[in-house]
Computed example of a mutant assay.
Amino acid sequence: MEALDSAVELTAVTKHYAHGVTALDDVTVGFGRGTFTAVMGPSGSGKSTLLQCAAGLDKPTSGRITVDGRDLTQLTERKLTLLRRDRIGFVFQSFNLLPSLTAAQNVALPLKLAGRRVDPELVRQSLDAVGLAERAGHRPAELSGGQQQRVAIARALAARPAVLFADEPTGALDTNTSRDVLRLLRSLVDRHAQTIVMVTHDPAAAAYADRVLFLADGRICGQLLDPTAEAVSGRMLMLEESC
């Protein structure tokens, strides 16, 4: 995939940790604009490290990472912080909403902390994109777990990120609620051309993606296009048996 067609590009990325642990081993991969990629692999395969390096949360030992055309490895810490704030969105398993703030205030908070003018219409549009415009005045305790995760996604979307990184976004949700959140992520790709990279252990969740990328021992060991839950499960079983 050409770099110009990629929202995120990793080139020969390696990440070493202490005690001789290699979390990523010469990884080269692109994540196309307006696509949904799920990243899977056995425990310790490097999934989380890949996401953290790609999102600029951790620095690779070697290699090159570009997000929206900017080389993260060449940025100062301040410029990297600004890029993460302006062009990268994050959604995690924990919702990380402030209980004293309304949904709209939680969405607006990162913009305020960044010293940016908060446009109420942008906040409304972000909540509308996740189907919660009518719940803007509700606090987290007044929302279900799925609705809280939707607010967290709206918060990530408010900055209009080039890429949205999701780390086990449905891990704390029940099956039906998880399905609703995954449908939302799918619709953000289909209707708004949002780029999403999601780490998951759930084959059913991965089946919502355009592509599933498989890691083992810090290396990419295959992919599935237009995946089904059954095909993902079969590939994961093979990986786990070989590890």
Rank of each mutant, 00 (worst) to 15 (best):
114 A>Q: 06
52 Q>Y: 15
99 P>I: 02
135 R>L: 05
59 K>T: 14
53 C>A: 11
60 P>K: 03
150 R>Q: 11
103 A>Y: 08
96 N>Y: 01
91 V>M: 00
72 L>Q: 01
120 P>H: 00
167 D>F: 06
133 A>L: 14
68 D>M: 07
74 Q>N: 10
112 K>F: 06
146 G>N: 00
156 A>D: 14
103 A>T: 06
160 R>V: 00
56 G>C: 13
71 D>G: 03
82 L>N: 06
152 A>G: 09
36 F>K: 15
42 P>E: 07
71 D>E: 06
66 T>F: 00
75 L>A: 00
54 A>F: 11
144 S>F: 05
157 L>I: 07
84 R>Q: 04
109 L>F: 13
96 N>I: 02
175 T>K: 12
95 F>W: 03
175 T>E: 13
128 D>K: 13
95 F>H: 02
68 D>I: 08
93 Q>C: 01
175 T>S: 14
139 R>G: 05
167 D>M: 01
112 K>I: 06
158 A>R: 10
50 L>S: 11
166 A>W: 10
137 G>D: 14
130 V>N: 05
61 T>P: 10
177 T>G: 07
41 G>M: 14
155 R>Q: 12
77 E>D: 08
106 N>F: 06
42 P>L: 07
81 T>S: 09
59 K>D: 13
55 A>R: 15
117 R>A: 11
127 L>D: 03
79 K>M: 05
138 H>V: 09
124 R>T: 12
100 S>P: 09
65 I>N: 02
106 N>C: 03
153 I>D: 12
53 C>I: 13
36 F>G: 13
113 L>T: 11
137 G>N: 15
118 V>T: 10
166 A>S: 11
114 A>P: 03
64 R>S: 07
117 R>H: 11
112 K>T: 07
127 L>H: 08
160 R>L: 09
157 L>C: 03
113 L>N: 02
130 V>S: 00
105 Q>D: 15
158 A>M: 08
63 G>A: 11
65 I>E: 01
111 L>I: 13
89 G>Q: 07
69 G>I: 08
116 R>A: 13
69 G>P: 06
83 L>Q: 01
104 A>M: 08
152 A>E: 11
122 L>I: 09
90 F>E: 06
